[in-house]
Amino acid sequence: MHAAGSPVIARDAGSLGPLVSVAAVVAALALQVYLPQYFGFIGNLDLPLLVAVYLALMSRSAIVGLLIGAVIGIAQDSLTDGPVGVFGILKTVIGYLAGTISLYIEVDYPGARSVLVALFFLIHQILFWIVETVLLGSEISIQLVLTLILAAAHAGLSLAVFRLLDGLKKTP
């Protein structure tokens, strides 16, 4: 049993540079906004979530992960007509969880990352429902089947996205 906060996995030798990370975030946000105009189903995907999970996992730090999540989430909120903070809160939590988990499990394995992405998507949706209904008083419902399908879709999509991002890593 390890104490809280004590990493068990050593930092990966390779990581994304700051500019590449920012570019990845901007690209994800841009595609999230741009692609649904032509492919409507892409609107159900959360590309910034994939980038946030990836960056948080790769940071292997809870604080860095939550900050990454907060920044990406707030940036995503800024592109909506809703209040700023909803996706910020969600992705902060997801980034924190991803950063924390990355300290305990090996996240370089694609299968494990896909499972984590699916799991984080479900958590993300649950938190979204809580924030919308409990905190903001909106009336939305969770479509369980669709949510599960989307979770699987995100897991599958993460394989490609993460592979692409892995290719952008700087090798030491």
Binding site: G5, A62, I63
Partner: peptide, 15 residues
Amino acid sequence: YRNVSALVAVLFLQF
């Protein structure tokens, strides 16, 4: 509890 504290702080600000 640095990590948790940071999480709470960031979440609090966003709330």
